[in-house]
Nucleic acid binder design. Sequence first.
RNA 1: GCGGAUGUGGCGUAAUUGGUAGCCGCGCCAGACUUAGGAUCUGGUGUCGAGAGACGUGUGGGUUCGAGUCCCGUCAUCCGCACCA
Length: 922
Amino acid sequence: MEYNFKEIEKRWSQYWKDNKIYKVKEDSSKPKYYVLDMFPYPSGAGLHVGHPLGYIASDIYSRYKRLKGFNVLHPMGYDAYGLPAEQYAIQTGQHPAITTEQNIARYREQLDKIGFCYDWDREIRTCEPEYYKWTQWAFIKMFESYYCTSCNKARPISELIEKFATSGSAEISAACSEELNFTAAEWNNMSEKEQQEVLMNYRIAYLGNTMVNWCPKLGTVLANDEVSEGVSVRGGYPVEQKVMRQWCLRVSAYAQRLLEGLDNINWTESLKETQRNWIGRSEGAEMQFKVDNSDIEFTIFTTRADTVFGVTFMVLAPESEYVSKVVTAEQRAAVDAYLDSIKSRTERERMMDRSVTGVFTGSYAINPLSGKKIPIWISDYVLAGYGTGAIMAVPAHDSRDYAFAKHFNLPIIPLIEGCDVSEESFDAKEGIMINSCGNGLDLNGMTVKEAIAATKKFIEEKGIGRVKVNYRLRDAIFSRQRYWGEPFPVYYKDNMPYIIDEKELPLQLPEVDKFLPTETGEPPLGRAKNWKTVDGYPLELCTMPGFAGSSAYYLRYMDPHNNDALVSKESNEYWRNVDLYIGGTEHATGHLIYSRFWNKFLFDLGVICEDEPFKKLVNQGMIQGRSNFVYRIKDTNTFVSYNLKKDYDVTPIHVDVNIVNNDVLDIEAFKAWRPEFETAQFILEDGKYICGWAVEKMSKSMFNVVNPDDIVERYGADTLRFYEMFLGPLEQSKPWDTNGIDGVHRFLRKLWNLYFEGDNVAVADTEASKADLKSLHKLIKKVSWDIENFSYNTSVSAFMICVNELTSSKCRNRHILQPLTILLAPFAPHIAEELWHKMGNETSVCDAVWSEFNEEYLKEDSVTYAVSFNGKARFNIEVAAGTSREEVEKIALSHESSARWMEGKEPKKIIVVPNKIVNIVI
RNA sequence: GCGGAUGUGGCGUAAUUGGUAGCCGCGCCAGACUUAGGAUCUGGUGUCGAGAGACGUGUGGGUUCGAGUCCCGUCAUCCGCACCA
């Protein structure tokens, strides 16, 4: 009987839908397992063959876990807010909701063809009010919370208000934007507005004046992870630095917990490293430096407190608030000129050009330990956003300070015994200290490590500094000057933001006439009519960024239709957190940080019961495109085949990969492809036109996009699923190459034939042969191990071997084929379901029970040992299974060939490795 | 510059974790069948060599009876961060 995949796949996907086979409910009688895919942004281009790679892997895992008796939550939804739909709306006037709706429909159609086991009743879309109600709710909670640095969690802001009223700012320990000092009396005398301004300094969601990445072309600010090399990740438009009043999330307060949490989750080491890098913890010290002949004192941050005696100058960032305070009258003109030259350059230009620039302020600082007078300079190599925006420069032991000192002819004092600083600085943290004694501190003779500790202790005791931990992680900018996002549940009174009542949620996104900013430069929401509260106060005009809706979506799947809570306690305590999360690495420093932050915040509130959202994370590799080329002979319309092109002067031209098969060009299709190729001539090899190829990003302009629909149409979904897994290790990036797909398809047909004799199912209920049982159990063992370890590509091979063995033994046995069908079900659910029913089963194969392998069947009757002499394998011996070590040694030595290889010597040592080798050392 | 990963046939890859390197698939070669095709089946296929055999996991050392696997060095490619004090 023919393997008619089209008919089979159509029938069973309908059956799954009609019988709600993938519906999942909480069930306390079963252990839960939560498998999640990173939900897609539905773009206009639809899915290409790379997108389903991770989805197929998670689908296999979900189906496997279900067969193993777990209650598996495997949902899907859409990250529906985003820039492309809005950009499209600006160009065409088409409402982004409509575009998004259409794109989702297209995505759904494509996903359905592949046979995923999603419970679509739990689908969520971030742009729907029932969903974003909870995004807005979380924002309100963040606005109404501060981060307590002594209990290390978020607490209600009302606690702070109470403390301020009774004891001022003295007794609080809270993460803040800047240190404030006021008494209870001062607090109580403040106006409402002043109090609100103070509170803003502590809120977890706060309005702050911060340096932002402003993208004029997109008309909005961007997060650090949305900018790469000075241009926007989406669109590639230039980005500039600008101070703006923006909503921010105090992610930095969670830096330490985000860092520590990494130790308890099962992610790849490289991804954890990326996050550690991004968080960027560094331990050091802050130290105060007094400005000579002035009351001004400023603080610097250093990780090399030990080098304080080698400080020969100070450097301020150009944006530092101290710049204007320390510049002397004589130097003012020079400093202003320098600051102007910095401002005129974009971030990108500054990054490109690393030449040394700077200007002297005219002032001096006093080194608190050596007492020496040292000049204060300004340079853009010091960043305003890190540490305190000011540094002590130690040219002998920091390469950047060294370059600066050389350029401006500043002194260099070496502090480590034997180091040579005539050509370059000595940056290593090792060696014995010299030249480091003064003001009661003597570091000479200590190692660098000891000196750092001694200096830290000394400055704390003397009150000239303190131990300090700095993080690179900045607070997240949370406003976007755009339309297509969640509205903030915020109105303004007296220019201060207030929260609208929780009961009013969701605050729905209003209609606007155009999706452009207003004439006065306000965000598009400025065009919305009635964008005011009942009391006439104006609402916030910005919307939330893309990561807002994706930060807690995994929680919503647990209880997607709950209108009273983000997730009910019962649902959350049952599903807890994501056991397996599959997605790309591109979210390492964006979504995966924000989600962890958001989750920890909700955990602090007691809303959810787990501190980390994603227990295990697997990054699937990217599927690149495999482009094909034809070679046109210059100034002709003649194309020459790949291996003959060296004899001609040719221009390579991208050709649509869909009219090329195994690098052979379909000439008729090519002629029809473009009018100019209609009259094309060809120089063939062996009667074929062979195309060249290259691995490139999959994109329309390279004509290398492969649509999964086309593969499903031609080979079926089950072949596509198997083939995507067969392509190589899941985590590895690889080009899409259809050259091997026939082999996988052939295997499925071969498997199909196992069950049939002519047109009839020929499965017999007789006793299975030992050899067949062994084939089967070998497969069960291998596939179980492979699925648990995401080594799907080797599973496919194992299936092929098993089917080959069963084919040659003409196995038609139910005790073999029934379990085989169950093993097949996670990988190729359609064909498995068909065979399962053909064998007379009534219920879905999805509800079958995974077979456990039995070691008994895997035991060998005899074991082959390789006999080697001094490590060189020479011949094999076969002994009965269970033969003792000593016996094996004896048999090996008495073998007829042994004497020859021993060359008359006596064996010094005999090593017997179970099942493998007898090595005789002579 | 710092950090991470990867180097195995013509190609994608495998090697049960230190035990006969190259499973499985593609491609290629030979054969069978045939309604001649982008179908199916069988066998072969790391390199050198007629052969026995020798050589082979980027490269150079080392540990070991035995190394693709462990250690030290080196080269190449890819990815992340980057004037972070």
